[in-house]
């Protein structure tokens, strides 16, 4: 995916030390960055903190940014490494329930809304969701981030391939194995 012309111009301005231009890039990508970090770390405060820190580091390193690349692809590598370091350094598992919305539009509550017509089916689906959500946090952070990006954030294979710097077929394959591992974690949880 080629960067658009205006983005290149903003980057050139950033490379001359223009913080306002960098503010434009931050505004463009902050939500994506936040949700990607949330997929890795699972808590609002940490995701906010890490995504902002990654932007600050990107600004410091912007002089070495290679023209022709997309800013977000480059920034993603910084963010991903920051998040992985954070997750590995953290001893205890994150409190993950607070990051999940009950409503499919991401509004207030805590679990995804159910579309099952019967109460029993709704209970079963809710339990399944709860187990699956917990199982996500048993996974390796890169597997989790991939599943979150594809299924929860609806990131295209094309974009994932660009971010992961590999062919789309490889992304599909990694997603398949991540899905299998998720299923295994879930089965273990459900006994």
């Amino acid at each position: 995916m080629e960067p658009d012309r205006s983005e290149q111009e903003w980057i050139t301005r950033c490379q001359r030390g223009d913080k306002e231009a960098f503010g434009f890039l931050v505004g463009r990508y902050m939500k994506q960055a936040y949700y990607v970090a949330l997929g890795f770390v699972g808590s609002h405060d940490d995701a906010l903190d890490l995504s902002q820190e990654a932007f600050a580091r990107a600004f410091k390193a912007i002089g070495r940014f290679e023209p022709g690349r997309r800013f977000y692809t480059w920034y993603y590598q910084i963010l991903k490494n920051l998040c992985l370091n954070f997750v590995r350094a953290r001893k205890k598992r994150p409190i993950v329930s607070c990051a999940l919305a009950e409503d499919v539009d991401g509004r207030e509550p805590r679990e995804p809304v159910s579309t099952d017509p019967l109460p029993d089916a709704q209970c079963e689906a809710a339990e399944l969701r709860q187990n699956l959500w917990q199982a996500l946090w048993d996974l390796d952070p890169e597997d989790r981030a991939l599943i979150v990006a594809r299924d929860m954030l609806d990131t295209s294979y094309r974009m994932l391939a660009e971010l992961m710097e590999c062919p789309q077929g490889t992304v599909m394959s990694r997603l398949y194995y991540a899905g299998r591992r998720l299923r295994e974690c879930m089965e273990r949880r459900m006994g």
Binding site: L100, G106, R107, P112, V113, D151, M152
Partner: peptide, 10 residues
């Protein structure tokens, strides 16, 4: 199931 999960919006 994963398709129905969404993060809370800040």
């Amino acid at each position: 199931v994963t398709m129905t999960m969404k993060f809370k919006r800040p």
